[in-house]
Amino acid sequence: MVRFALRIPEDLHERLTAQAAADRRSINSQILHLIEAGLTAAPLETPDRPGDDPASPALLRGKPDSTPA
């Protein structure tokens, strides 16, 4: 198993902790469960695929490029 550090906002950590407790899982198990569920869900349409809805929320892709122009 791969081990890595992940920084998340405090409010997201609080939500994960509450949901993990409600589901009787550790935070680690909850995160794994959510990732697996997200990866097995129906694929979202993206701008490079026909039928994409531009009004739908964008996927989380990290910070926007902040390099100077």
Rank of each mutant, 00 (worst) to 15 (best):
R15H: 08
T40V: 13
F4C: 13
I35W: 02
L12K: 02
I35N: 00
K63D: 15
A41E: 01
R24Q: 10
A21W: 01
G51A: 06
G62H: 03
A21P: 03
A69G: 09
R49W: 13
G38E: 07
D23K: 09
T67F: 04
S29N: 11
R25C: 00
D23A: 15
P43C: 02
L39Q: 07
I35G: 01
R61W: 07
R15G: 00
G62K: 10
R25I: 02
L44K: 10
P50M: 01
H13S: 11
A5Y: 09
D53C: 05
T46I: 15
D23M: 10
K63N: 15
A20K: 01
P50S: 03
P47H: 04
H33C: 06
A69Q: 10
H13K: 12
T46R: 14
L60K: 09
L44Y: 12
L60W: 15
R24Y: 09
H13D: 13
D53T: 10
R7S: 14
A58W: 08
E10A: 11
A20M: 04
H33G: 01
R24D: 11
L32Y: 08
I31G: 00
L59W: 11
R49P: 00
A55M: 11
T40I: 06
T46N: 04
H33R: 08
N28M: 09
A21F: 03
A22Q: 12
A5P: 08
P50D: 08
N28R: 05
A5H: 13
P54G: 11
A22E: 10
P57M: 09
P57W: 07
E36M: 10
V2D: 12
P47S: 04
I8S: 00
N28G: 04
A42C: 06
T67L: 13
L39D: 04
P47I: 01
L60R: 02
L60V: 15
E36Y: 06
L34V: 06
D52W: 15
R3T: 15
A37F: 00
R15T: 02
R24A: 10
R25Y: 01
A20W: 01
A41V: 05
R25P: 00
R61D: 14
E36L: 08
A20N: 03
T46E: 04
T46M: 05
D53M: 02
L12A: 02
P9Q: 12
A41N: 08
L60T: 14
I35V: 15
G38Q: 04
P57Y: 04
E36T: 08
A42Y: 02
P47Y: 01
Q30C: 04
S26G: 03
A41F: 02
R61F: 07
G51C: 07
L32C: 05
A58D: 14
D52M: 12
P9F: 10
E36A: 09
D23T: 04
E10K: 06
T67V: 13
L59D: 11
K63R: 15
P64Q: 09
R24H: 12
P64L: 07
L39T: 05
A41R: 03
H33L: 08
A55E: 15
P43G: 00
R25E: 01
S66L: 15
A22N: 03
I31N: 00
L16M: 08
G62P: 01
I31V: 13
R24M: 06
L59S: 14
N28C: 11
L59G: 13
S26T: 15
R25G: 00
